[in-house]
């Protein structure tokens, strides 16, 4: 039965993927193409966040720092050196090293303590990175940021759209495999009951740090794609808004589901787009964070499982108890 259900879901994913691959060839709209590219990039970012929040039960308020590290690394490499493919690969490698290092140190420092410490420390360190990006003018050009050229193969919008789409699918498949692996199971056990996992003989800190590093590296990758898509980078990549985006996407889409993160990314990016257009109608829509903030508060209060979690609940009544637990995971 479970196998059958899995197959049906896989068929749906496949159909959606094929539809998205064909889309740019049959329907030509530059705006939609760029918007969807953004959705894919932020979906990767939100999925990386989901590994922390949804699968391990860790709250980070500084996820933007990994995103920003990726964006700045690629930007600085393309600006300082020739914009060639080997340099791009080198910048990806440097991003992996940097994000892994930062997330490892942060995790080691605070993950053995209660959950607020990680939230607090990540927020403070992300603030530090923002200040660093503003002050280290010789490299980052301060608040204004800088533009850079990208390798020729990334110049075409349609090609880049496909690259982002394929990256998103790859990350999704990889994380699906990761969360279903024995390691992923331990992470979910930590989310459900940390003390029990520890007393079963698992070194909880060790697993939490692994989750933190995996999530950090993937967030760095999404930052790289983001910077390439804009061919421009400034300090906004380190701001709280980026972290907020990840939070909104995972929570509204559904924590601990991965698909939820993708759906959430789509919803938030499109809503963002529409609200920006509406700003011409009434100035209150310029302050769209208020709407998102209120929706977010209500979602945390009343729909802690998000769209996907709630839908699953309705659909598979038999699984209800299990799913409810997943919703309360936000609890522990």
């Amino acid at each position: 039965m479970k196998q059958l259900m899995g197959n049906r879901m896989n068929a749906v994913y496949l159909a959606v993927a094929i539809f998205l691959i064909i889309l740019p060839f049959v329907y030509e709209s530059r705006t939609l193409l760029i918007l969807l590219t953004q959705v894919f990039i932020f979906a990767i970012f939100a999925m990386s966040y989901d590994i922390l929040l949804g699968y391990t039960g860790i709250v980070s308020f500084g996820h933007a720092m990994f995103f920003g590290i990726g964006a700045y690394t690629v930007g600085v490499f393309m600006k300082r050196f020739e914009p060639t493919v080997p340099n791009l690969l080198l910048s990806i490698l440097v991003t992996i090293l940097l994000t892994a290092l930062v997330s490892y140190v942060l995790g080691l420092l605070t993950l053995r303590l209660k959950s607020h410490f990680y939230a607090m420390l990540t927020m403070a360190v992300a603030g530090l990175f923002l200040v660093l990006a503003e002050k280290w003018r010789t490299v980052t050009y301060g608040n204004d940021g800088f533009t850079f050229r990208v390798p020729d193969m990334l110049k075409d919008r349609t090609d880049f759209y496909l690259i982002c789409l394929v990256s998103m699918i790859a990350v999704f498949a990889l994380l699906k495999r990761f969360t279903n692996s024995p390691l992923g199971r331990v992470l979910q056990a930590i989310r459900e009951n940390e003390q029990r996992t520890e007393s079963l003989g698992y070194s909880v800190l060790h697993y939490k740090v692994i989750a933190s590093v995996v999530s950090g590296i993937l967030a760095g990758m999404s930052g790289i794609l983001y910077a390439i898509s804009l061919r421009f980078v400034n300090t906004s990549v380190f701001t709280m808004d980026i972290t907020l985006d990840a939070l909104l996407m995972t929570i509204i889409g559904g924590v601990g589901t991965l698909v939820g993160a993708i759906i959430g990314a789509g919803l938030i990016e499109f809503a963002h787009h529409w609200l920006t257009e509406l700003a011409k109608v009434h100035w209150i829509f310029e302050r769209w964070i208020i709407f998102f903030g209120i929706i977010y508060i209500l979602a945390v209060m009343f729909f802690p499982m998000g769209i996907v979690g709630t839908l699953r609940n309705i659909k598979f009544k038999g699984k209800k108890e299990k799913q409810q637990k997943a919703g309360e995971k936000i609890a522990s």
């Binding site: 607020h116 903030g293 209060m301 522990s332």
Partner: peptide
């Protein structure tokens, strides 16, 4: 509910 508290107070901060 610690995680919900952390999440919800951050939302309030932004609002």
């Amino acid at each position: 509910n610690h995680i919900q508290q952390i999440l919800i107070t951050l939302g309030l901060m932004l609002v």
